[in-house]
Nucleic acid binder design. Sequence first.
DNA 1: ACACTACTTTAGAATCATTATAAAGTAAGT
DNA 2: ACTTACTTTATAATGATTCTAAAGTAGTGT
Lengths: 138, 138
Amino acid sequence: MNNNSTFKEKLRLSGLRPTKQRIEICKFLFNRRDTFHFTVGELSKILRKKNSEKISLATIYNTVHSFKKKGYLKEISINSDKSYFDTNTSDHHHFLDVNTNQLIDLKNNEVRKVSIKKKIPGKKIKSIEVLVKIENDN
Amino acid sequence: MNNNSTFKEKLRLSGLRPTKQRIEICKFLFNRRDTFHFTVGELSKILRKKNSEKISLATIYNTVHSFKKKGYLKEISINSDKSYFDTNTSDHHHFLDVNTNQLIDLKNNEVRKVSIKKKIPGKKIKSIEVLVKIENDN
DNA sequence: ACACTACTTTAGAATCATTATAAAGTAAGT
DNA sequence: ACTTACTTTATAATGATTCTAAAGTAGTGT
Ligand SMILES: [Mn+2]
Ligand SMILES: [Mn+2]
Ligand SMILES: [Zn+2]
Ligand SMILES: [Zn+2]
């Protein structure tokens, strides 16, 4: 279980000053077992309710981008309306429920290994991601 | 090879009036052998150069969305900055060159069948799409 | 404890893709 | 030709994201 002081340490080790805003965001994002998928707007609303002192939207954008750059968050493009972020930074796949717009992680062992038969000269594969759109079964 | 009158017919059959704007857009988008991936902004610029009389950006948005609704175009989300459209409306996969931001089609037989082992109760699979990010090989 | 500096937060403005509005134009049916 | 519903268009509005620049703070050294 992570507490304030371990987050402080981790932030410092990443070259990020442990401000109270960043620590709050860390506590919310990283003290969880399951993956969390979110937009910056959603995160902002949730933190607004949860916390006494508000964190400005600009700071949440800054922080989320810093965390992404440091490799603690991953950006996911499922919809061009807004950007989603993912606390699961490993290479993994997703269900997207088109009725609720909710993302669900698919562990790598829940998808048979994807093998690509085509090669592009001068290019190498960086990542392979599967998006499975699901809908109500009726 | 499609010409103006076949597009007129196809538009009418789809319940869309064959206006000169729609016919121009059809001629540009659908008279081609290979898949074309584009954003509305790009399409607008290209048509501006190609054509004598300009088509307003609003019309291009309207038309692209109509064509999508009728199933003649597919929307692809690879980047939350802007939306991409695809003249290949079949279920298929993509390479995304992260250096150039270019999309390349992967035919279904170029990707070994993706099999999903996990089921979500009450939901059924609508589509399965693979995005393979590639980068310069050096 | 104090001072200094670089980093951070913040409100508000700017940007940019996309969508909405509503007036003028046009296709199709009578 | 007349009518009507559909379409195009300029323009404004929206909304997510980024930028700006001023005020605040963490880390460092004295
Ligand atoms: Mn969309
Ligand atoms: Mn992006
Ligand atoms: Zn995920
Ligand atoms: Zn394609």
